[in-house]
Write a protein that binds this DNA or RNA. Structure first.
Lengths: 120, 120
DNA sequence: AATCTATTTAGCATATTAGCTAAATAATAT
DNA sequence: ATATTATTTAGCTAATATGCTAAATAGATT
């Protein structure tokens, strides 16, 4: 389970427009930088994107995007894997799923506790 | 459904430690400022908390807490209702639920799309 | 070894955020 | 009318965040 500090880090990371859009694009598979048909289908890297490719879709300088990616990685929202001189980037669905579960739990608990009081 | 701007606002609101803790306390029903047994059970106000009560639980000045609450309200995370000279505060479970659904959808879509490629 | 490609780090300027105290507003109670 | 209670607004300072360019690093290619 995610602890409070981790959750705050995730929210902070997603609370910036640029980072949110980067995250969204990575997650919805906006663009791949290296679809390599010769590689086996279970090779994640072959379908992944990389820093430069992401930066091409934004009006910000490359180092700016690089720093944003670092923050998303520090919040454990994305995974970055170095292979040769490129860094391949994938979403981390596990964290996002955990966050969704934690929200659901919160709402369910709230509904349960207010039911006790006022039957809503 | 929540649009991108609203989502970013919510994340920004929850990406600050103080606001996150305020939110958490409001949501988990940490403290009520006016449990009034004489009022009907379905009167939300009777079980709610207010600005001063929340501020008492933090080491920050009242105006600081007031501003944080305003931000949580602007993000639609909480509801604030003025009644006489107090402002009663409740969580808005609807928004949190929507956020949880939107994360779940994201993860499900991601899993579905990667299944196409590499059978994960 | 020199060059090219991909990325990060350093250093800087500006904008935003988060805290404070003091003062203002709004409603209630005396 | 005055005082009390609850809250917000204004104005300030300090810290943090976000952008930039230039330089550094790491690996691949010539």
């Amino acid at each position: 389970m995610l602890d409070t500090k981790q959750k705050i880090k995730i929210f902070k990371a997603l609370g910036n427009e640029t980072r949110f859009l980067i995250f969204k694009n990575i997650f919805t598979g906006g663009y791949a930088c290296s679809i390599d048909e010769t590689k086996p289908k279970d090779d994640i890297i072959a379908q992944a994107t990389c820093v430069t490719t992401i930066a091409e879709h934004f009006d910000f300088a490359l180092p700016t995007i690089s720093r944003h990616l670092k923050e998303l990685r520090d919040a454990d929202i994305i995974k970055m894997t170095k292979k040769s001189n490129k860094i391949y980037i994938e979403p981390n669905p596990k964290i996002i799923k955990e966050l969704s579960v934690c929200f659901t739990t919160l709402v369910d608990n709230y509904k349960a506790s207010s039911f006790q009081f006022d039957n809503r």
